[in-house]
Amino acid sequence: MLRCLVQGHPKQWEEVLSKAEFAYNAMPNRSTGKVPFTIVYTKAPNTAVDLIVLPKCQSTAAASFTNDYSKMLSDVKQQIISANQRYKMTANTHRRKKLFEVGDLVLVRLRRERFAPGEYSKLARRKLGPVPIIAKYNDNAYRVQLPPGCNTSPTFNVSDIWPYHSTDDATISINSSESSSSEAGED
């Protein structure tokens, strides 16, 4: 909005900031269907057209005002709930439900953020595995048994975990004693 208002004069953004704020607060919100001024101040903002003719002061009953305002707030609440449900449905269209059990073999994605600066290599494998799941915290967080020398946290979000499917019919079993015995032999 500021880019449109300042156009060829980007250093004058502070001068149009109050105009942008007024315009934003005077327009109906997509989620609530109401103007933010109406929600906060119980009436629409005064514009230049409103100030030309001074309104006559007429008092209404406090009860009708309270009822109208509470009805408006409940309408806003329902609008927000329905908007959030629409947003949730849109966001969930691309999500996939993944549940794992302790002992399942999985592949884990190693993101750049999981490593200390200088340890991540662009040419390193993106997925590591198969590794067994050793603990389930909840449906979104799992702890896996990473190989020795992997200097990252063994707890992964479900979005970084894929089920492992063997390319052949061979049974794969990984024991913690096998990995610890190979570590002992290296010393």
Rank of each mutant, 00 (worst) to 15 (best):
Y24A: 13
S176L: 07
E21Y: 08
L73N: 07
G103C: 01
N92E: 15
P154W: 04
Y24M: 11
Y142G: 01
L2I: 11
V106C: 04
R95F: 11
L2A: 06
D160R: 04
N138S: 09
N29K: 09
R126L: 14
R96Q: 14
D104S: 04
P132C: 00
T47W: 06
H94Y: 15
Y142K: 04
S31W: 10
G129E: 02
Q7W: 11
P154N: 09
Q78I: 05
R86F: 03
F156M: 07
P117K: 05
G185K: 15
A44D: 15
E101F: 05
A91P: 08
D168V: 02
H94C: 12
A116D: 14
R111G: 15
R111S: 14
K136P: 00
I161G: 03
L110N: 05
D187S: 09
A61Y: 11
C57W: 07
P36Y: 01
W13I: 04
T47I: 03
R3M: 08
L105Q: 02
D187V: 01
R30E: 13
R3K: 11
A184R: 14
E178T: 12
S70I: 07
K43F: 05
N67V: 03
C57M: 08
L128C: 06
T93G: 05
Y142A: 06
D75I: 01
S159L: 14
Y137A: 12
H94R: 14
N92W: 06
D160V: 08
D160M: 12
L123T: 10
E119I: 00
L128T: 02
L110A: 05
D68F: 02
P154Y: 02
Q145C: 06
L146E: 01
D168T: 12
Y87W: 12
D50G: 06
D139I: 04
Q7V: 08
L5S: 03
S179N: 09
E21G: 12
R114V: 03
L128Y: 05
F156W: 01
I52K: 15
P45G: 06
A23Y: 09
L146P: 00
W13E: 03
K56S: 10
L128K: 03
P36H: 01
Y24P: 02
V40N: 14
N138M: 02
N29I: 00
I172L: 11
A23F: 08
K71F: 07
S173H: 15
F100G: 04
S82F: 03
R95S: 10
D160I: 08
S177G: 10
H165S: 13
R3P: 03
P117S: 07
I81A: 12
D187W: 10
R30A: 13
R95V: 15
R30T: 12
G185V: 09
I134L: 04
V102P: 03
H9K: 14
T152L: 14
Y137T: 11
Y69S: 01
M1P: 10
D68L: 00
T171K: 14
D75F: 03
V40I: 14
D169P: 06
K56M: 08
T60D: 08
K77L: 07
L5Q: 04
V108K: 01
A184D: 14
F100R: 04
K136G: 02
V53G: 08
K11F: 12
I80L: 11
T38S: 15
Y41M: 10
V102I: 04
K88Y: 08
F65D: 04
G103I: 00
I172V: 09
K127A: 10
S31D: 12
Q85V: 07
